[in-house]
Design a protein around this nucleic acid. Structure first.
Lengths: 329, 329
DNA sequence: TTGTAAGCGTTATCAC
DNA sequence: GTGATAACGCTTACAA
């Protein structure tokens, strides 16, 4: 066909066809028909567990999506935004992994309904990659050494002499309840990232109190910070599970008249640029967010070409900033 | 068919079919074939002009996408992220409006290559909606009274006695050059939103100097603020074209030891929650960002059902916060 | 209620 | 190099 540019076509024929097309009002091949014939739609489904606005609030998600988009582009593929299961409410008509013409799927931090989404794609025998979630079997996974990394930051803080340390966690379950975690709560955490990072922190500070945020944002951190720093025996260091949460803690400290790091040390996690945080430079764990996305995209590409994609384990790099210092005496 | 649930099927047959399906390893209808037959893919393409990470940095974009997603969901449609034209580099293999199986398209602030993208969808006779961009002809557009709104904020500032007023604009062209705009620069602005808001501000302060940012973020605002507030005859008020830019200006003011609003008044635009800006509450123009997205989605839905969708003009609401005050004497 | 047949618009293949 | 032909897997309409 002239449009596909696949077969060599003579100039004359080409023009003749184009003229006819023009006359008939034909505007190129129909992608729907092409995708049926080819067995490829050129679309990769991305499953998010929050609504769009919330998901993209997180800088890590943004970076990951960026890397993902970049890696699937050469494939001629675009990203289709999908939300995972949830209640029957949306299930009625919203597009799902089973009804959307996707060639492959990427499950992003679908902690809650991961298994459900996974079952759906697996049933359709679609290539699938799971980002930071425990998919168990033989599906390629992109993971991070969250626990080890968090342990490293905790050790750093311990080395500075801190003993009264509190942890500010990411949401622990899909319910996203805000507040202090009680004794057995750690075992009921369903979000893998949260669980791993908490474990890493407690490897170093076994009994450290932990407060769960309802999301990863500065305002959530601020809100949590007010509560965490308000207590009588307030901590001298807070290990936050994300940079934006850490930024919120810093704001709360400023609000309470505490200097960082003289009165309070704060560590983050992610190593992203937090808009407006200057002049502070967080002590944090730098994770290769964009690379993670890219790796997911490449894994998808590999599987689409029939190759097997291996799981990848990324590591974080500890970066000392100016938000941690010796424990106050 | 049993799976479609369209035709009434007896229980016995249903089970028989299901068993056969199971045996043959059939896992439901192929969405690609269905979309060809139906002539619908259930996908709405969203054209962004930046890469994902950058686009979603802007709170307004996030909210708009949210509203859009919500409005197209009942349609059974998902959002496919697409980037507009650009150089030949990406054009090679990246998915485009012409190759993706979309039922309709939404063009989001595609200032630069809007016409190009528009031509592509129009050629395919797809329903299309343009968000805040001048599409000229009879394509439905979702617009905002940017100029009038900005004029209102400027009047408020004028009423407070300010005369030395500077404007901080959003990017003026796709090139996104940062710096003071010279005399004729206003006429060379290709981004509609930027042009309209600048015009509104200059309706009230005709000769006001304007500085162009390279993007809508706090750090951009901070960077611009350092330059704008560093001059000898620094302004007593800055009209920023977005809330996040305004937040950056406030940070720059703090940095320079200026109090807001005592020494410097600042206005924003958008009325979004700026993460971490508390305790300031911006004087700003609240725009219905989510509604804009929803309206775009509904317009798309209407067109998909054969109805005609009218253009919609949204208006902003002026909201006085605590970042503007009387001009210092 | 169940079964059957005809296309949706491509693209790949094969004979010319 | 060019033109015809046969699927791709579904949905819908119509006949049994």
């Amino acid at each position: 066909m002239v449009f596909s540019g696949k077969t060599p076509v003579s100039e004359a024929t080409s023009r003749r066809v184009r003229e006819a097309a023009e006359a008939l009002g034909y505007s190129g091949p129909d992608p729907r028909a092409a995708s049926l014939r080819r067995g490829r739609s050129g679309i990769v489904g991305v499953v998010l567990e929050e609504h769009l606005g919330a998901a993209f609030l997180d800088p890590v998600t943004r970076l990951t999506m960026d890397g993902l988009a970049e890696a699937v582009a050469p494939l001629g593929a675009g990203l289709l935004l999908l939300r995972d299961g949830l209640g029957a409410a949306s299930a009625a008509s919203a597009p799902t992994l089973t009804t959307a013409p996707v060639d492959a799927a990427v499950l992003m931090g679908c902690s809650g309904s991961l298994r459900e989404s996974l079952a759906a794609v697996l049933a359709r025998r679609l290539p699938v990659v799971v980002l930071e979630g425990d998919a168990g079997d033989d599906v390629p996974q992109i993971r991070l050494d969250s626990r080890e990394a968090q342990r490293q930051a905790a050790s750093h803080v311990k080395g500075l002499g801190h003993t009264r340390v509190a942890i500010l966690t990411l949401p622990t379950t899909v319910a996203r309840r805000r507040g202090w975690l009680d004794a057995g709560a750690a075992d009921r955490i369903t979000v893998d990232v949260t669980r791993d990072r908490l474990a890493g922190a407690r490897d170093v500070f076994p009994g450290a109190p932990a407060y769960a945020s309802a999301g990863s944002s500065i305002d959530e951190g601020l809100r949590a910070g007010r509560e965490m720093l308000g207590a009588a025996d307030r901590p001298t260091a807070v290990l936050a599970q994300s940079d934006v949460l850490a930024a919120g803690i810093i704001r709360a400290a400023e609000e309470a008249g505490l200097r960082v790091p003289e009165d309070l040390s704060v560590t983050g996690f992610d190593g992203v640029v937090v808009d407006g945080l200057a002049p502070y430079e967080l002590t944090t764990l730098v994770q290769p967010a964009t690379d993670k996305g890219r790796a997911a995209g490449e894994a998808v590409a590999a599987m689409l070409e029939g190759r097997v994609a291996a799981s990848i384990h990324f590591t974080c790099r500890f970066r000392e900033g100016n938000t941690t210092g010796p424990a106050p005496v």
